[in-house]
Design a protein around this nucleic acid. Structure first.
Lengths: 216, 216
DNA sequence: TTAAAAATTTAGATTAGTCTAAAAATAATA
DNA sequence: TATTATTTTTAGACTAATCTAAATTTTTAA
């Protein structure tokens, strides 16, 4: 078994790996709010346990075993988020912190039964895919709203940023998962976008458009 | 906030306090599978935080603040056990270990919503009372089967021992919560008991009778 | 009521995870 | 390509929780 801390490092490396081939010490330190020196210490430990591929100064990748552990944490995190929203009526901006704790509960049986109880959901409340018990999931083909051209439509299906502030903002302007949008105008100066959402015009910044994901 | 370990010490002291006025270092060490020296260190720390009343060599009691923390852990533990059995179909002998982890999830909101979701249950799957959000609960008047005299009846309502081995044994002989029993004969040599359970005669040892609780 | 036994505490180490400050390696650029 | 800047690692220290072994206090019982 791995410690709570080791699990958090593996999860951080996993998430950073989806954006970069190899993950650097500083990237990990930033994402875990810790210092580079602490990261180096932990990387040595994880390498000793064969959970990562690590050579000094060369960055790090997950080993197959490390990826397996990371995926099980991600699975637990997303299943718990689904549970909190669907069964306990949490809002989608309230679940992340709690799921950060719940994801470390070790019982394999628990998470599988929870999955069963909820009918094997495929996506969490933010549109992220939930890996199955073998770590498999179909990566959904999500594109940021900012990549759309004028007059195309799409369905809001996920977010790239999970901060409560962002999620609450989306909630407030009713830009939530499942809604259909149409791009009406793209401002070429600041890349802000005017959308059509349920017969209403809506103006969003480039930043929001970048972090909001749709399926076509 | 208190650490995971501090919470476990407070919980252990709480449980031991229900049986003894003042709790000794060795009792705590035994119940936590640790050494007396480690317990002394922790007692100093808990006393500094005003969670316990402690004087060297004199044993320990919970302060009001300490009892509040302990009760919140007990509440979480028992609510999670109820959830696991009622919603996720765990057996009553499988839930203790998992609940030992879940009881340390800190979100107050989570446990209150869970309570709500399950309809504010009053007793966990082993018949132990679940404190409400203010730490209040009515201590049920349970007596061990071993205290009954011949020809009296009672309803199985709880257990005093939570080991999987004991619970599985009860399950096997169908002596589970809710069933009515009648004491037919008490063996004066070894205090074993012959019971009537649903028209069948059943023989149990003194030890089992001591750890099985009934309401009249 | 004193000597032996038991319980408890202290002293001194150890491990996991973290930190700061300094050294070493890599990357960037003049 | 030589020098500067950045990144990463090492060295050494700290805290929380634990341990063993020795010392101290309390309890028991002769």
């Amino acid at each position: 078994m791995n410690t709570f801390t080791e699990e958090n490092y593996l999860k951080a490396i996993y998430h950073l790996s989806t954006q970069h081939d190899s993950v650097s010490t500083n990237q990990i330190a930033a994402s875990l709010n810790t210092r580079a020196a602490s990261v180096t210490d932990m990387l040595k430990k994880l390498a000793d346990k064969r959970l990562i591929n690590y050579e000094r100064y060369q960055g790090v990748t997950l080993s197959p075993q490390g990826e397996k552990v990371a995926l099980s944490i991600v699975r637990k995190h997303r299943l718990w988020e689904y549970f909190l929203v669907e069964k306990l009526n949490f809002k989608w901006d309230e679940v992340h912190e709690v799921a950060e704790e719940l994801e470390h509960i070790s019982s394999r049986d628990l998470v599988d039964r929870l999955d069963e109880f909820m009918g094997h959901p495929k996506f969490d409340p933010h549109g992220d895919p939930i890996p199955d018990k073998n770590g498999h999931f179909k990566a959904n083909e999500l594109k940021p709203v900012s990549s759309l051209s004028v007059n195309t439509t799409g369905i809001i299906s996920g977010v790239r940023e999970h901060s409560p502030a962002f999620l609450q903002y989306l909630e407030k302007i009713k830009l939530v998962i499942g809604k259909e949008i149409k791009v009406c105008e793209i401002n070429s100066y600041d890349h802000s976008i005017t959308l059509l959402l349920e017969d209403e015009m809506l103006y969003i910044s480039r930043d929001v458009a970048n972090n909001l994901l749709i399926t076509l």
